[in-house]
Amino acid sequence: MADNVKQIASAADFSSLLASTQYVVADFYADWCGPCKAIAPKYVELAKQHSLPGFMAFAKVNVDTVQAVAQEYGITAMPTFLFFKDGKKVAVNGNAMIQGADWNTLRLASEKMARLAKEKAIAAGGAK
């Protein structure tokens, strides 16, 4: 996508992203979900600001079309935001997940992950 958000089409797609990117923020959403639609533009802004190829990515997983991934992570509410480091689900700022369109908590968690990703990229010689 032009807005730096990776639209996940399959479980293999998601696995590939987790394998190729150190930090991933995943938005589990549904097309019919009002709060999902409300926070989507802000999520895109986070992706524009913080995406860093190989180090930080933002993904959207439609729970209706990529059910296997939603089931694997026990998604029961939309939107739900999960955080991954080196392919494993992690808590950020004490939150294992963010359920609902909680903009401030999502922003703070994404910014923290972005700082860590940028530090890793600089250490690897991949960003300034």
Score class of each variant (00 low, 15 high):
N93M: 02
K89N: 12
M113H: 11
A30M: 10
I122P: 04
Q71C: 06
K112W: 06
L46Y: 12
A77C: 11
A121V: 07
A9N: 10
P41Q: 09
W32I: 06
S16M: 08
V5K: 04
W103E: 07
F14A: 09
T105C: 01
K85W: 01
Q49N: 13
I98A: 01
F55G: 08
V25L: 09
K89D: 09
Y43S: 03
D102S: 04
T65H: 10
A57L: 10
K120P: 02
G94Y: 03
A26I: 11
L46F: 06
K85A: 02
A109R: 07
I98K: 00
A121N: 15
D3F: 09
V66S: 04
G100L: 03
W32Y: 04
D3A: 11
N4H: 15
E45S: 08
G126T: 14
A19R: 09
T80K: 09
E45V: 06
M97Y: 07
L17W: 12
L46A: 08
G100K: 02
K6Q: 14
F83D: 03
P35H: 03
F55C: 04
S51V: 02
P53I: 05
F83I: 01
I98F: 04
T65V: 06
F83T: 00
L116P: 12
D13H: 13
A114T: 13
W32Q: 05
K48S: 06
A9K: 14
D31H: 12
V90C: 04
A30C: 10
F58G: 14
Q67N: 13
H50C: 07
N95V: 09
N93E: 06
A123F: 00
Y29C: 04
S10I: 03
S20G: 13
R115D: 10
Q67V: 10
L52Y: 05
G34W: 07
A123W: 00
M113I: 01
E72S: 08
D31F: 08
L108A: 13
F83S: 00
K60Q: 04
A38S: 06
F81A: 01
D31L: 12
F58V: 06
K85R: 05
E119C: 07
